[in-house]
């Protein structure tokens, strides 16, 4: 008897919207979504356009005679590079992977302390926000100087180390951890769990949505960055710089550059889809009860 009535209630809560309302939401989303998708769609379509259609006047949105020439050219250009293309891919994946994971771990540890510990240096969190807004372009010169002094030029560390203490992640994680009931942590402490254990088995699983979201930000941030003036060795350069060199060869390569930019967008999109699917999963059994 109870079960059907519960079901009806749940159905009512979610399904109370009228058909017109649902249609309205769909239209609204479609209208706004068009602004998001059109540039991307344009890039996809353009990467299949032959050169005469790319420069056609007036320009057409759709392609008349699709060709895979641009993509072939991207691969043949990539194959003819002095350093093998796979090397750039490896560099990018390695640097982005290490920097993202390291950043998430460091940021979470600090956020845990800033959010749940009673320390005298809590005011330092203000420094975090301050660091967040000081723009990189002004800091290039001193950062270069200090990296040269530390011998980080021409190493992977030159890419990775400056990313690790980025304050965006710390700021995000702290805001999410502030939401976590202190009672949860205290009860684990009373049961005899060490802080490290509380951190790994209670805090991190509970704020999984937060660091899954941070994963998206951090990864795309590192993946899309193209730090110049830190690494000069071609063997250690990133995919971004390889593709922008291919693209930079002139306006005749508009199609190739479209194909290249699409190629570069694939990993962030994959990471996004994976992480966001798990965000929805974790919230269902996050183990928090009020």
């Amino acid at each position: 008897m109870i079960l059907p009535s519960l079901k009806i209630k749940k159905k009512n809560r979610r399904g109370s919207r009228s058909l017109a309302g649902t249609t309205g939401i769909f239209l609204f989303l479609a209208l706004l979504g068009a602004f998001m998708v059109l540039p991307l769609l344009y890039a996809v379509i353009s990467s299949f356009k032959p050169i005469d259609e790319l420069y056609a006047y007036p320009p057409r949105f759709f392609v008349r005679r699709p060709t895979t020439e641009n993509i072939k050219m991207l691969f043949s250009l990539a194959a003819n590079l002095w350093v093998p293309f796979s090397r750039y891919v490896f560099n990018s994946v390695f640097v982005s992977g290490v920097a993202t994971v390291g950043h998430i771990i460091l940021a979470s540890m600090c956020a845990f302390v800033f959010s749940k510990f009673n320390l005298r240096i809590k005011w330092m969190f203000k420094l975090v926000v301050t660091a967040l807004l000081f723009n990189g372009s002004v800091l290039w010169l001193p950062q270069y100087v200090i990296m040269a002094k530390m011998g980080l030029l021409n190493t992977y560390w030159g890419y990775i180390l400056p990313v690790l203490p980025m304050s965006l992640g710390l700021f995000l994680m702290k805001q999410f951890m502030d939401q976590l009931p202190t009672a949860l942590i205290e009860s684990a402490g009373i049961d005899g769990a060490s802080y490290f254990r509380i951190f790994t088995t209670i805090v991190m699983p509970t704020v999984k949505p937060a660091w899954m979201t941070l994963l998206v930000f951090a990864f795309q941030n590192v993946w899309n960055s193209n730090p110049h003036g830190v690494v000069f060795d071609e063997q250690l350069k990133l995919l971004q710089s390889a593709i922008s060199e291919i693209v930079a060869a002139g306006i005749a390569r508009v199609g190739v550059s479209m194909a290249g930019s699409l190629f570069i967008m694939i990993p962030p999109i994959v990471i996004f889809v994976v992480s966001q699917n798990s965000v929805i999963e974790t919230m269902a059994h996050s183990g928090l009860k009020d």
Partner: peptide, 8 residues
């Protein structure tokens, strides 16, 4: 988020 920075 994915598009609005870098080379793309």
């Amino acid at each position: 988020i994915i598009v609005a920075s870098g080379l793309v």
